[in-house]
Simulated scan of single mutants.
Amino acid sequence: MKISDLIRKELVVTNLEVKTQEEVFKILFEKLLENGYVKETFLDAIINREKTFPTGLLLGNYNVAIPHTDAEHVLKPAIALATLAKPVIFQNMANPQEDVPVNIVFMLALNSPHSQVEMLQQLVNLIQNEDFLKRILNVEGGDEVIKIIKNHTLKED
């Protein structure tokens, strides 16, 4: 399974104006819930997991968070994505005491534990490309984000 198979335009929010990671989580959760991807328990599970296992990645000019939780809270696999109008603070995955101003959030909703490792590897390949991050931050609408992701993942095949 590929990232481009899991990101749908109805799960993408561009230029989102929020102040906290909880606001990001709530908005992406609502998209996942209303489209039948997750259970009601997903939001609390994401928030609680983030407190224990932060997901902020300090990458340079554009930083990313990849919140995810256990498969039991997911009905069918998907990835919700938000590009943020202004960075929101997450804790660093590698050093939880360090703040990371995050620009892009990929919320994983995966219903099998082994698919998480594979998806995380694919995401890491994508997000290491600063040009890719810059491009998705500068587009309006889910269609454009999907197109950029599909084009980028096709180049890697």
Rank of each mutant, 00 (worst) to 15 (best):
L123H: 05
L120T: 04
L84G: 10
K155D: 07
L75A: 02
P77E: 15
V100I: 13
E98W: 06
I136F: 07
T20Q: 07
K39M: 15
Y62D: 00
A78M: 05
I79Q: 02
T55V: 03
G36L: 02
P96T: 11
I7F: 06
L110D: 03
V105C: 07
P101A: 07
S112P: 00
S115N: 11
N92M: 07
H114T: 05
K51M: 12
L110Q: 04
D157V: 12
V64G: 03
A80R: 01
D44L: 13
V145E: 10
V88R: 04
N15Y: 03
T55S: 08
A82K: 04
L120C: 03
H114R: 05
P54T: 07
V24S: 07
L32I: 02
Q91M: 15
A80P: 00
V18S: 10
F106I: 06
A82I: 06
Q91V: 05
P101D: 12
L75S: 02
H73Q: 03
H152V: 09
T52D: 09
H152N: 12
I148V: 10
K155R: 15
K9L: 09
V18W: 15
L32E: 15
K9G: 03
D157K: 13
K9A: 10
L58R: 10
A65V: 03
N95D: 14
E50F: 04
L108Y: 14
V102N: 09
P67G: 05
L110G: 02
F106L: 15
V124I: 13
V18N: 14
L84E: 08
R49K: 11
L120M: 13
A71F: 03
A82Q: 11
K155F: 10
P87E: 12
K9E: 12
H73V: 01
L110S: 03
P54F: 02
L11K: 01
V117T: 14
L58M: 12
K31A: 11
R135M: 09
G56Q: 05
E98M: 07
R135H: 11
A85D: 15
N61W: 12
V12A: 01
Y62I: 13
M107I: 04
N138I: 00
L28H: 06
M119L: 06
V100N: 05
L108D: 08
S115G: 00
G60C: 06
I89M: 14
Q121I: 01
A109L: 05
K2N: 14
F132C: 07
F42P: 00
T153W: 08
A71K: 13
I146P: 00
S115L: 14
V102C: 04
F29G: 09
E72Y: 06
E34P: 01
P77L: 10
T14D: 13
T52Q: 13
L6W: 03
V139L: 06
S4F: 08
K2T: 04
D157M: 08
F25A: 06
L43E: 09
I136W: 09
E140F: 12
M93W: 05
Q121P: 00
E140Q: 13
A71Q: 14
V13A: 08
L28K: 01
M93T: 08
R8W: 04
T69S: 13
L57D: 01
N61D: 06
P54A: 11
M93A: 12
I136D: 02
K147Y: 01
V105I: 07
K76P: 00
D70T: 09
F42G: 02
E118M: 10
K2R: 14
P96C: 10
